[in-house]
Every structure is written in structure tokens, then in C-alpha cells.
């Protein structure tokens, strides 16, 4: 099962924190120079780190480079990790800042969507067809087109709004964890999430059932 999708919904619709194994023993070993321990930490979190980079950039190549940069930066800064927060929150923060710097640098460039390498083999599975039919009234629209429109709409959001949508609606992190990563309070996260969804509703209204 893809770790990115392994989230749980608590009663009331609030997303609970994803079940994370205890990273601290591995972190301690990695801090003392054990490469295998750090490799295991990468194995645990790389899907989510790559996912964050990908959903914020909508570009596979950029996301791959950024995920690599973030994981190397985390290794360099590992000795400064004191365990005040969970390891994955700390790692997310490094990845988020790496992506943010990248987005600032390319702000004047036209974003390039890269979806060619992604897996659309599941387009014709009954589950997905049902999902699409419940979302959109347009039967002519294909999955690739829907993805394209969705990514274009996400890229039109500000970085803060795109981040909360990515972390909450796509990756399933709870508000508290997002607040910790973004170093703001949970109320700000909720507010940004609401505003971001409102914007997406306006941008994708033609593709959504009312």
C-alpha cells in the first residue's frame, strides 16, 4: 500500500495523523553515522516527501531533484535534530522550505506540467470510473484531461494555499501536523484550506457536479 494513501479519517471527518512507526531509534543510529539507519528512514518517508514536492510543483523531474535535495539536506542537518518534534514533521519542513526556495527562483518562468511519466494505467478501473462519474457531469472528459485541469488550477493557487491543500486533502495530514510543519497555528491552516477549496471550486466549476 502506498504510504501516501495510508491515512485514516477520524469520526467527524477530521483527518487523523498517519500511523508512523517510531523513528527515534533509527534517528539516533543515523546521528552516530549509521548510513543503513538513514537509508531506512528514507525508505519510510520518501514517498511522502516526493509527493509533497510533486504536488507543489506539478513536475516530476523537479520533484525528483527537490526530494533528493531535501533528503540530503536533512542528512546534513541530522545532528541538529533534537527530537522536539517528530522526525517526519521535521523532514517535511525541510522539504517544504526546499520547494519554496525553488518556487521563488522559478517564479518568473512559466510552470511546466509534466505528467507523462505518471501512472494512468488505472484510468479504466471501475473504481476510478465511478469516482469520476460522481465528481463530474461531463462524460467526455478523460482522466488525463481532468488531471491536467486539476494541476493547472492548483498552480494558480498561492504557495500557502497549495501547500495546505496538498498536505491535508492529498496527503492526509491533520491540521495540527500541518500547523507544526508550516509553523503557524491550526486556525490559520483551516482558514487557508477553506479559502483554497473555494478558489478551486471557482476554477473547476465546469468539471464539478453541483
Amino acid at each position: 500500500m502506498d504510504p501516501e494513501t495510508s491515512r485514516t479519517h477520524a469520526p467527524g471527518g477530521e483527518v487523523s495523523a498517519p500511523a508512523m512507526p517510531d523513528d527515534m531509534p533509527l534517528v539516533r543510529r543515523a546521528q552516530s553515522g549509521d548510513d543503513e539507519a538513514y537509508e531506512e528512514l528514507i525508505r519510510r518517508h520518501q514517498h511522502r516527501i516526493y509527493g509533497l514536492c510533486y504536488h507543489l510543483t506539478s513536475n516530476h523531474e523537479d520533484a525528483a531533484d527537490l526530494a533528493q535535495d531535501a533528503l540530503i539536506k536533512a542528512w546534513k542537518a541530522l545532528r541538529s535534530f533534537k527530537g522536539d518534534s517528530s522526525f517526519y514533521t521535521w523532514l517535511y519542513r525541510i522539504a517544504y522550505n526546499t520547494v519554496l526556495n525553488h518556487l521563488k527562483q522559478r517564479r518568473n518562468r512559466t510552470p511546466h506540467l509534466s505528467l507523462d511519466d505518471l501512472d494512468f494505467n488505472a484510468e479504466h478501473t471501475p473504481e476510478l470510473l465511478e469516482l469520476i462519474s460522481t465528481i463530474t457531469p461531463r462524460r467526455d472528459v478523460g482522466l488525463a484531461e481532468l488531471h491536467q485541469k486539476l494541476n493547472e488550477a492548483l498552480l494558480r493557487l498561492s504557495e500557502e494555499h497549495r501547500t495546505v491543500v496538498t498536505l491535508h486533502d492529498i496527503q492526509g495530514l491533520p491540521h495540527d501536523a500541518i500547523a507544526e510543519i508550516l509553523q503557524c497555528n491550526p486556525g490559520t491552516v483551516r482558514s487557508r484550506l477553506h479559502y483554497a477549496r473555494q478558489q478551486l471550486q471557482g476554477l473547476l466549476g465546469d468539471f464539478l457536479k453541483q
Binding site: D2, Y50, Y54, L115, I135, L150, L204
Partner: peptide
Amino acid sequence: NIARLLELKQRETPP
């Protein structure tokens, strides 16, 4: 529906 639409993004996986 926005939240359901965003679930599609979870299916975007690398090679």
C-alpha cells in the same frame, strides 16, 4: 466534490 477530485491526485505516482 473538491476533496473527492483532489483524491485523484493520489493516483499520480512516479514510474
